[in-house]
Design a protein around this nucleic acid. Sequence first.
DNA 1: TGGTCCCGCTGAAAGGATTCATTCGACGGA
DNA 2: TCCGTCGAATGAATCCTTTCAGCGGGACCA
Lengths: 365, 365
Amino acid sequence: MTSAEPRRDDARSPAPTPPPSADPGPRPSTIQDVAREAGVSRAAVSKVIRNAYGVSDRMRTQVEAAIERLQYRPRVAARAMRGASFTLGFEIPQVGNDFLTMIVDGATEVLAGTPYQMIIAPLGRDQKSDMAINSLADRQVDGIVAISPRVDPAWLERIAEHTPLVMIGRHDRSDRYDTITGDDRSGAEQVMSHLIELGHRRITHLTIHPSRPEPPWAGQAGDEPHVIRNAVYREHMQALGVEPSVIHTLFDGSEAHAATRALLDSPDRPTAIFAGNDTLAIGVLSAVAEAGLDASDVSVVGYDDVPIARHPLVSLTSVDQSGIVMGREAVRLLLERLAGRTEAVQSQIAAELRERRSSAAPRRP
Amino acid sequence: MTSAEPRRDDARSPAPTPPPSADPGPRPSTIQDVAREAGVSRAAVSKVIRNAYGVSDRMRTQVEAAIERLQYRPRVAARAMRGASFTLGFEIPQVGNDFLTMIVDGATEVLAGTPYQMIIAPLGRDQKSDMAINSLADRQVDGIVAISPRVDPAWLERIAEHTPLVMIGRHDRSDRYDTITGDDRSGAEQVMSHLIELGHRRITHLTIHPSRPEPPWAGQAGDEPHVIRNAVYREHMQALGVEPSVIHTLFDGSEAHAATRALLDSPDRPTAIFAGNDTLAIGVLSAVAEAGLDASDVSVVGYDDVPIARHPLVSLTSVDQSGIVMGREAVRLLLERLAGRTEAVQSQIAAELRERRSSAAPRRP
DNA sequence: TGGTCCCGCTGAAAGGATTCATTCGACGGA
DNA sequence: TCCGTCGAATGAATCCTTTCAGCGGGACCA
């Protein structure tokens, strides 16, 4: 452990600059400086940099030259006070999560060529989704994309009053913010049909902890994706006449491994595990592999179809709900709002099972 | 493909609000509103929210009550104009990259409990690192962490004149910005010694494309991590008296798979592949597995020791340079700068090989 | 030739918070 | 009783950009 602790060298010289306090350095130039340099008014410079109407070619040239000479860059904070910040904020609850990464990638595609810059607010430790969303709103972003099923819809509507908002993974409907969802019901049904057709009966469902305490708005507004997947699982088990077996773990996959180990050691271990998402499924797979078992002992199915699922060493059967498309769509909806749309939109992305080698017919049903 | 295209429903009702333009809604309350509500001056409210000196208990209580009643939240843009934005910006060239994720995780740890919020600026498509760094600086973040070996050091120093800057993975020294590096020389040496001790001779090195055209500051300022790893590889091959074999691919791993396939089909295929980082190594492993080969046919070693490398199905030998520690250190350095430090610091993190099952003695040396 | 209209450009106000110099009030000491 | 002091609170200036009303002058039309 100590070996990973950093070693530090101070810079060779005590810095050639006045040592006292942090020197402010030559203060970056402002629009005023450019105006003076180009011999025009501030308003004129403003029009040039915003590409606004009413500027002659001669002036544009002059101003652009001045900007270049002074290396001027407009301060976003100052712009945000009157106009726009040209920033779209993404609230991402878990930076490493591959599904969320796909969403970001899709968004990046659509953002190319627009004047908007994406910034991501990852959840701090002990930080809740609403705090990160607030923090984006405080920074006056022009639009917010959030992935947080567990936030009060009324609170979201209040945010959406002043900042366009797209929520991913919410099955509720709002008149003020837009939503994008996968078809969780269909996806989960495909998983269960697939496993049952293969001959599995003892199927365990691994999912994330439910919200505790149950929030007051639960249910009244459509359920979280994981809740729907769980419900579909239970329906199918009931139809089979088999007792459902559900295990709850943390969402970051850190408990999935241990939970699966315990499950595999239990007297009548399942022949298949349906994990609520791929992060969990990867943890499940590692426990299965460690126990020296394979797909005909214990089949594993995930949800989201993250890139690593395709890897031949992993080859995880999973449900593709195209995070890329979700990300594209999210930005598109935001840009529409910024262009003036006021009616809310609900957008649904299809789900499709990708069968791979992690699921197979059970050896001993 | 079309199945993944979104389906849209418009909201049931045409919105209960005035349909014309995007209604501005009740404008969020300002510090002025709070002052009026609490019957004090703006300056007083400002002192309360900044926890500044010179406010009586009575006044604090009054103001806090007003803030609560009005749901007031200070606008960061306005604060940034005079004071601080309480925001630290991270330039992350590739959001999905697990090594970069580790850095973010480490940073998040240290940030907890401070008043600073982290925001990540991912690289847009066709966006260069310096554009993302600029975009953070434009947003008046209080400090920047960047991971971009390929940026002009002179330009970086100009940025660092007004915004504290920590560069990760740069082996140059600056008097104005801080750097954090892994011990790339030692790490690469451990890899090569490991492979050679196992009995490998025909070792191929897979790395990312060199900068083209060669930037004018190359070399003068210490090399990029990948360049160092490559150099160490070459030295060891020369010492062995074997012709080096280096393959260059894109950094996102998208070409590693195909490049490896071609390599495996070649007449005298290597018995080991040293990948410049784990993202590449994962791609290499997938090609090796697809070809029905294992570690005694072709050993694979990566660099960074990302979490998936530990997965029993992957079990990738890799060099741990503790991204977590790097992230922690980066924030610590930034906080020190914000507290007034002016001398530059170079910090180095140790590298340690983690041997796993992806490397083994060659079947036929 | 006189009146309109449009274009290019300017000056001043606005936006929300912080900072700093100043005022006010209370209290202690002489 | 008066003065000096110190803490609490305030008003005005400031940060940088956009917005908007308005101004001068040339082109166009009648």
